[in-house]
């Protein structure tokens, strides 16, 4: 009887010990994420500035994403227009199609689709690159040669995503609207001038500001998550794969939360 009591007591103690270690780990992780963000803002304003690396990363994030973004954005424009038409047709309101496309693409689809594609393409690549640099001691090599690896690797990449995602968002929005226009023109024979007049009539200055703020936030998040996961990846090839994978998953999760939060704030402003 005593033995079984001891066993139960031991297993309860082990379980509570495990839980306390897990809780400790969660708080340590939160602290590390916070410190990583604070360090970025500390380092970004002080020299030396790695301009060459920032430009290289801007090219990697921006120019290299163009083919994928172009095709995806264009197809989304066509598909969204095509799928929205039947609903409007039921009310005989297909003339509102350009306005609907405009609101949907500029307010939500453009920034979100760009960010999701970038999280998959850029976020995973940053996570894997930095993870592999950590595993092969390249980050340590930078540190022992008195070069700040955080500034060279993290600051340059986060700045590149923060600058380039808004630019890509503008581009995706334009390409999606073109896709939408082609579909509308094919079915309703609307001219390009009429289409874009309706597009711009439907949106407000606040929509443009909201989309810009969102895309800057998305860019920062994608860069930061990719860098954080790669910079602190565990040793070994498994760590590199994990860094790439968690970069995408975490970034996407945060993107949707941010989308929701910004939408609430903008709706509140609109209601004022």
């Amino acid at each position: 009887m005593d033995q079984s009591n001891n066993k139960t007591e031991n297993s309860t103690r082990t379980r509570s010990h495990l839980i306390s270690r897990r809780v400790d780990r969660i708080f340590l992780e939160i602290h590390r994420v916070f410190a990583f963000n604070v360090r970025f803002f500390k380092e970004v304003f002080f020299p030396p500035y790695e301009f060459k690396e920032i430009i290289k990363q801007c090219y990697e994030v921006g120019v290299r994403s163009l083919p994928l973004i172009s095709i995806t954005g264009f197809i989304i424009g066509i598909v969204f227009t095509n799928q929205s038409r039947p609903s409007l047709q039921d009310f005989g309101a297909t003339s509102l199609l350009p306005a609907l496309i405009s609101v949907a693409i500029i307010r939500a689809i453009g920034p979100l689709v760009t960010a999701i594609i970038a999280a998959g393409r850029v976020g995973s690549s940053i996570g894997a690159e930095l993870g592999s640099m950590r595993v092969t001691e390249q980050i340590d090599a930078m540190e022992v040669s008195a070069t700040n690896p955080f500034k060279f690797l993290v600051v340059s990449r986060v700045l590149a995503t923060t600058f380039m995602i808004p630019a890509l968002t503008m581009y995706t929005t334009l390409v999606s609207l073109l896709g939408g226009y082609l579909n509308v023109h094919q079915v309703e024979q609307t001219t390009i001038v009429t289409f874009f007049n309706q597009v711009f009539d439907a949106i407000t200055f606040l929509d443009i500001i909201a989309a810009s703020v969102k895309s800057v936030l998305f860019g920062y998040t994608i860069g930061m998550v990719g860098c954080y996961k790669g910079f602190y990846s565990s040793k070994g090839t498994e760590g590199v794969g994990k860094a790439a994978n968690t970069s995408v998953v975490t970034a996407m999760f945060l993107l949707f939360i941010e989308e929701l939060l910004v939408m609430q704030v903008i709706n509140a402003i609109r209601g004022m």
């Binding site: 592999s132 092969t136 390249q138 090599a141 022992v144």
Partner: peptide, 15 residues
């Protein structure tokens, strides 16, 4: 660190 050279086990060349 500028006075110390560190040769890593796996060379750690920037890929």
């Amino acid at each position: 660190r500028l006075k110390i050279g560190f040769s890593f086990q796996n060379s750690a060349l920037y890929d």
